[in-house]
Amino acid sequence: MLEIRHLTKRFGGLAAVNDVSTTVERGKVNAIIGPNGAGKTTFFNLISGVHKPSAGQILFEGTDVTQMRPDQVACLGVSRTFQTTALFDMATVLDNLIVGHRLRTRSNLWDVITGSARLKAEERLCREKARAALDFVGLSHIGHRMAGDISQEERKRVAFALALATDPKLVLLDEPAGGVNPDETMGLAELIRKFVRHGITVCLIEHKMNMIMSLADKILVLNYGEKIAEGTPAEIRRTPAVIDAYLGAEHADA
């Protein structure tokens, strides 16, 4: 689904991502792990168009997206969440989600001024998509609440719903379980599996290794911006370089 060829991003003399080649496989949970500062979020920023690479190429379903803007990449079907979920806290949860499907609408200023039939139809569709996304993530009961009043775990689920509202093919999740307790982590892991069951490919960054090892089909390991390993969870557990750089002996296979 996604092919990365020799991707590099330099900030001055620092190579945050250095000559990384990999693929994101359709219909699977793909994970990226590594120590803090390994280049994981920069890698996501390159894929989603937030940063332009210093070198290399990014292909999404065969289309070169290397120099595309974030909105153009999103229109092709790549959505993402961020480590910190930024919402309009003084708006309702449902109103926050209505914004997500605007990516797929065509109404312009003239439609707004005239109150056109197209505007009204698209507003209805955005509301329907928002309600469907809330239902998907199990939050239909809080759609009326102000976003500033919901819990951290609920904010994480709203982030999933925002990504879903854009009609994605691939979702990039940046630390989706950060800041939530173990029971909530299990619930978010099941939500990720639900995404895949419904035909949405997932690529996530996460530090919770128990979650990753039980969830991921494929893992890419970065360290100092470079790929040091790639494979299944079982293969990653047995890789000495990964154990030394990140996992530690407690996560290694006996």
Results as ranks from 00 to 15, higher is better:
Glu3Asp: 10
Ile4Phe: 04
Arg5Phe: 07
His6Asp: 12
Leu7Trp: 01
Lys9Phe: 14
Ala16His: 03
Val17His: 04
Thr23Asn: 14
Arg26Ser: 08
Val29Gly: 05
Ile33Tyr: 08
Ile33Asn: 09
Gly34Leu: 08
Gly37Phe: 01
Gly37His: 07
Gly39Pro: 00
Thr41Ile: 03
Leu46Pro: 02
Ile47Thr: 06
Val50Glu: 01
His51Ala: 01
Lys52Val: 05
Ser54Tyr: 09
Ala55Gly: 14
Gly56Asn: 03
Gln57Thr: 13
Glu61Tyr: 08
Gly62Asp: 03
Gly62Lys: 03
Asp64Lys: 03
Asp64Glu: 01
Val65Phe: 09
Thr66Ser: 04
Thr66Asp: 02
Pro70Met: 09
Asp71Thr: 07
Gln72Glu: 14
Gly77His: 06
Arg80Asn: 02
Thr81Pro: 07
Phe82Arg: 04
Thr84Ser: 15
Asp89Trp: 02
Asp89Ala: 12
Asp89Lys: 11
Asp89Gly: 09
Ala91Lys: 13
Thr92Ala: 11
Asn96Leu: 06
Leu97Asn: 04
Gly100Gln: 04
Leu103Arg: 00
Leu103Asp: 02
Arg106Trp: 01
Leu109Phe: 15
Leu109Lys: 12
Asp111Trp: 11
Val112Ile: 15
Val112Gln: 13
Ser116Val: 11
Ser116Asp: 00
Ala117Glu: 15
Leu119Asp: 00
Lys120Leu: 11
Ala121Trp: 01
Glu123Cys: 05
Arg124Lys: 14
Ala133Pro: 08
Leu139Phe: 07
Arg145Ala: 12
Arg145Lys: 14
Arg145Asp: 08
Gly148Thr: 05
Ile150Gln: 10
Ser151Tyr: 09
Ser151Gly: 05
Ser151Thr: 15
Gln152Met: 14
Glu153Trp: 14
Lys156Arg: 15
Arg157Ser: 08
Arg157Ala: 06
Val158Lys: 09
Val158Thr: 07
Ala161Phe: 12
Ala163Cys: 11
Ala165Glu: 04
Thr166Pro: 01
Leu172Ile: 08
Leu173Glu: 00
Asp174Cys: 06
Glu175Ala: 04
Pro176Cys: 11
Ala177Lys: 01
Gly179Phe: 12
Asn181Lys: 06
Pro182Phe: 00
Pro182Met: 03
Leu188Asn: 03
Ala189Leu: 07
Ile192Met: 14
Arg193Lys: 13
Lys194His: 13
Val196Ile: 11
Arg197Trp: 09
His198Gly: 05
His198Ile: 01
Val202Arg: 03
Lys208Thr: 13
Lys208Phe: 13
Met211Phe: 13
Ile212Cys: 08
Met213His: 02
Ser214Met: 10
Ser214Gln: 13
Lys218Arg: 15
Ile219Ser: 00
Asn223Leu: 00
Gly225Lys: 10
Lys227Ser: 06
Lys227Ala: 07
Ile228Gly: 06
Glu230Arg: 07
Gly231Leu: 12
Thr232Ile: 14
Pro233Tyr: 04
Ala234Glu: 15
Ile236Met: 01
Arg238Phe: 00
Asp244Cys: 08
Ala245Gln: 02
Leu247Val: 07
Glu250His: 11
His251Asp: 07
